[in-house]
Amino acid sequence: MKKKTSTADKVFVICNSIFMILFVVITLYPVINTIAISFNDGIDAVRGGIHLLPRKFTLKNYSVVLNKQNMTTGFWISVLRTVVGTLSSLAANALLAFVVSRKRFIFKSQLSLFWVITMYVNGGMIPVLLLYKNLGLTSSFNVYWIPGMISAFNMLVLRTYMQGLPDSLEESAQLDGAGYMTVFIRIISPLCKPVYATVALFVAVYQWNSWFDTMLYNRQKTSLTTLQYELMKLLSSVSQQSGSATNMSTTGSSGMVTPTSIRAAATVATMMPIVILYPFLQRYFVTGLTIGGVKE
């Protein structure tokens, strides 16, 4: 009996290992391959056969990408919208969560419901576009951070966390004469650092990866387009002509780059900031998701 189970277990372990190896390979290979191509000489890469390491190492692709005006502008706009968007959204969501998590607040359930509804009902693309046009938000940087400042999901994550803090903290501070804003800034916020980090991470990733709002609202204004949008333009302009990519080597600053290699370098440059950061922030998003899952 005992032997039988152990052979079954062995088969299981082997199958499981194969599954995990396949999973890791399928996840990592495309990313590593893109990195390898981005560091490889463009013309040489056309021959194919580059998998995990560059064959003919060069930094040319990156120097071409980083010297493109629209890419550098896009980079700074992306950085700016990520910083401004994350800070404003975190402050607004935290303040709202603070208000609706106060036990004594008269309208706490009504105000919560008001925001939960926005998770499910929205006006749709066209009415929103017209509204932003009328408010003068199109062709402006403000469209990146003002309209989407509150996310009901993030607000609920924060609210759940704040509700878990002991009430006595607030009460004793109030006995000492502290107002609500003092309680929020001095007492609640310091205790909420982990969940603030979680929400900031969620928002920052969203901000950094957004491209559709740029396309819809700020397409005409090249000084306001983001890195992701510029990358999309670059990728789609090439993929339409991928058949003739071989004989399309870019002249100009050098004769050794091709659309494929430029594309790879731009892709790597765009994903690097987040890829480098996320492993250090793991514990934050794990807690955040677990709180979010038990909401309501």
């Binding site: 893109t34 990866n209 491209w211 765009t270 890829v275």
Partner: peptide
Amino acid sequence: ISYLPHFLSWIIVTGI
């Protein structure tokens, strides 16, 4: 490793 793709934008994923 399994979290990595979540942090890439759809632009990058579809490009890959």
